[in-house]
């Protein structure tokens, strides 16, 4: 089924146009993934949750009354999916803990490459451990092509609030990394010229 030419893509997708729906999903799935990462419960798999969101979108997009609210709607679907996974994981944990799940062997030695990869993962983990208000805008801003304005639209808050939260999130992440001494090494003596060259527009 294909919608008439010129129809709003969201309306077309909601009306059952499979091509419009697939294209809409491809346009938004990355930042939806970032929202999931911001709310991902321990042990959950991003791909699995994203698949659940995709199914929910197919089933419920027709219920979206205002197509211009697509982004906040997608975000709420993603947040609810993550919350539901967290509840399931909690039940699973409570059921399996008496069975001894989680009993691991001793520490496993890592070679240099594994340690580097683990350090890199720590940066994302640290961002995921920031307070909820800060981690979501921070992860969304790292998604290519998502502007501060778009993030404000997704989160349903003023752009100035997003800017303030982003700034605080970046400071908290930097401080967490400094405390943990992983990832970016403490900087060499101040290099204002280098910093200017790298970051000036």
């Amino acid at each position: 089924m294909t919608a008439p030419k010129g129809q709003d893509p969201v309306a077309a997708a909601a009306a059952g146009d499979r091509e419009a729906l697939a294209s809409l999903w491809r346009e938004h799935r990355r930042w939806v993934g970032a929202v999931l990462l911001a709310h991902l419960p321990p042990g959950a798999d991003l791909e699995d949750l994203l698949q659940e969101v995709a199914i929910a979108v197919v089933q419920h997009l027709k219920e979206l009354r205002e197509p211009e609210k697509l982004r906040p709607w997608l975000r709420s679907v993603a947040v609810n999916t993550a919350a539901s996974a967290a509840r399931k994981e909690e039940v699973r944990r409570r059921v399996l803990r008496p069975l001894g799940e989680g009993e691991q062997g001793g520490p496993v030695a890592q070679d240099g490459r594994q340690e580097q990869a683990a350090d890199a993962r720590r940066v994302l983990e640290m961002a995921q451990n920031l307070p909820t208000d800060y981690r979501e805008p921070l992860l969304l801003r790292c998604v290519q092509g998502l502007s501060q304005r778009s993030i404000a639209e997704v989160l349903g808050m003023p752009e100035t609030t997003v800017e303030t939260r982003l700034a605080r999130a970046r400071r908290l992440l930097r401080e967490a990394l400094e405390r943990d001494q992983v990832g970016p090494a403490p900087s060499a003596p101040p290099q204002p010229a280098a910093a200017l060259t790298r970051m000036q527009p």
Binding site: W25, A34, A120, V123, L124, A127, P184, P186, S187
Partner: peptide
Amino acid sequence: ARTGEAQNALRAQLERALEAADCVEI
């Protein structure tokens, strides 16, 4: 400089994590 480095590291790591998203279709 440290904030910029942290941001770059996070962006790279997130990009890698979101590669999974590219495989998920309707």
